[in-house]
Structure formats: C-alpha cells, structure tokens
C-alpha cells in the first residue's frame, strides 16, 4: 500500500488564539514494501507526520493518499476505518496502552474489534506471541505482571494482530536494554523482508536509520528538508548539523580513520560490520603494495 503526502500542512488548534503550525508543505512518497525512516530533532514535526499516516490527524491543507483512500481536511471519519486497520502504529511506550485481563485477550482485542472471529484472533495471538519470543505460559497472565520488555512485546503483538499492511514505529525500542533493542529491531526488519510489510520508522537513532532503512526523510521546523537513501543522507555532515542531527557513530568513525590515512573508503559504511570489512580490504591492499 503506497502512502503519499502531498503538500501537507497542519496546524494544531486551528482558528483559535492557540493555533500553532506544526507542518508546512510536506511532500513524501512511501512506496509499498519500502522501509522509510523519518529522523529529526525533537520538535521537528516527526510525530505530527506520524499521526497523519493513519489519519489520526487530517491535514489542514493538502492531502494524503493512503492506499486508495484520499484524506483531506473535510474528510468524513467513517471512510477512515479501513485505513486504521491497514496502517498499524506502534506508539512510544506502547505498553501504556495495555488494558485487558490477560495477555491473550489483550492481543485479540484489536482484530476482534474489526470483526475477526474469536478463533482466528486467538490463533493469530498465539502465533505472534511465539514470533515475538513470549513464553506460552505468559498468555494467561495479566499483562501488568510482566517485565517491561515483555509488556513491550505484547503491545507490539497487539498491533501486528491486525495484519497491517503498513507498520509505523515511533521510537519502538526506547527504554529497552541493548539486547532487547536489537531483538525487536531485527524482528521488524524480518517482518519487513519476509512479509513485504511497508515500514515507517520514526527515530532519534541515526544508527538504526542507517542500518535498516531504504530511504530516510529529515524533518526540520515542520518541513521535510531532505529525502534520500542513507548513503545520500549521510554524505553531507554539515547539512545534518544545520538540522541539529549527527552522523551515525560508525560513519563518524569512518571519517576519523579516513582523515588519519589521508584516503577515502570507496563507500559510506552504514554498519559496523561493513566498516570492518572495508577497512580490512584496504589494509590488505596496502600490504600488497
């Protein structure tokens, strides 16, 4: 399902003395099956864009096309149900939204709300808890008796249980320990690859954007100021600094090494693995000269 933002502007509390413009003329194309990262400093408008992706907010000007539904300012809400089912959003600290008596019921709630029969919702919940590495005995427990990391997984399972075509992630690993962070990011990437799930990641982590995304959009002062592949985005450090962003740690390190050697690696290394590989290759060449 393609998502296209066309000249989207948004103002909070429009036509009141408290009106505050949050987005200005944002254009962004998220093709079906892609992995799009949205990065930007705190207050840049990232979260406002995110809430447009399943029409929780409707643009005050411009439009957003989500699959075959066109969302505009005067759109009636009843057409948006389909959109909400197909675009799943994992908000920051999604475990705050858990509410049901048992983990199983909590995961089943979303799909049943959209008319999926109980039996099917249950089998989805069981399959997803396995996929997310939740032990089976957890299903009958209260979600509030779980550890923070497990609660996060239950909340994510609840979103995936809707079988969304697009998964929108807002800082999905905030507050998790390093292993939990990696497991969850790797899982999203696997879902993206195996099920062709269109993925939108809103993050502060340049490292995650560099490692996982096909394309990156930079938000700054409510505008989408730069869009491109990770290679293109992280080529220009000065421009990033203008937007109060930094290079991923491994690109920063690459620059230090390049400066020391007085020569450049053939490509910008977006992961530590790639950097080690390129450095090793270069050293072997040096030795042979």
């Amino acid at each position: 399902m393609d998502i296209t933002l066309q000249q989207v502007s948004y103002a909070y509390a429009k036509n009141t003395p408290f009106e505050k413009r949050a987005l200005f003329d944002v254009n962004l194309d998220i093709p079906s099956g892609s992995y799009q990262a949205i990065i930007g400093h705190t207050g840049s408008g990232k979260s406002t864009v995110l809430q447009h992706l399943n029409a929780l907010l409707k643009p005050t000007e411009g439009s957003i096309k989500i699959g075959d539904v066109l969302v505009k300012a005067d759109q009636k809400n009843k057409h948006l149900r389909k959109v909400r089912q197909k675009v799943g959003i994992v908000f920051q600290f999604p475990e705050h939204q858990l509410f049901d008596e048992t983990v199983l019921k909590d995961i089943m709630f979303g799909p049943m709300n959209f008319g999926v029969p109980a039996e099917e919702a249950k089998s989805r919940a069981i399959e997803l808890s396995r996929l997310l590495g939740l032990p089976e005995e957890v299903l009958e427990k209260s979600p509030f008796d779980l550890s923070g990391g497990q609660m996060r997984r239950v909340a994510i399972a609840g979103v995936l249980a809707m079988n969304p075509e697009v998964l929108v992630l807002d800082e999905p690993t905030a507050g998790l320990d390093p292993r939990g962070r990696k497991e969850i990011m790797d899982l999203f990437y696997r879902l993206h690859q195996e099920k062709g799930l269109t993925t939108v990641l809103v993050t502060h982590s340049m490292e995650d954007a560099a490692r996982y995304a096909d394309r990156i959009a930079i938000m700054h002062d409510g505008k989408c100021v730069l869009e491109g592949t990770p290679q293109e985005i992280f080529e220009n450090e000065e421009r990033l600094l203008d937007y109060r962003l930094e290079l991923p740690q491994c690109v920063k390190f690459q620059k230090k090494v390049e400066q020391m050697m007085g020569k450049k690696l053939p490509t910008i290394c977006l992961t530590e693995e790639k950097l080690a590989e390129e450095l090793a290759r270069l050293m072997k060449e040096e030795r042979e000269v």
């Binding site: 320990d177 390093p178 939990g180 740690q249 491994c250 390190f253 530590e272 080690a276």
Partner: peptide
C-alpha cells in the same frame, strides 16, 4: 548478559574477525 560493548570495542572485534 544482554548488554552491549562500547563502539570501539565492537569495531575492534569485527576487525579481528576480518583477520586484522
């Protein structure tokens, strides 16, 4: 144990894996 290593150590380990 579920923790991570500082960046420089991670890269060092990866370089050693590459025979450096």
């Amino acid at each position: 144990l579920g923790l991570d290593l500082p960046f420089a150590m991670n890269v060092s380990r990866l370089l050693r894996d590459q025979g450096i």
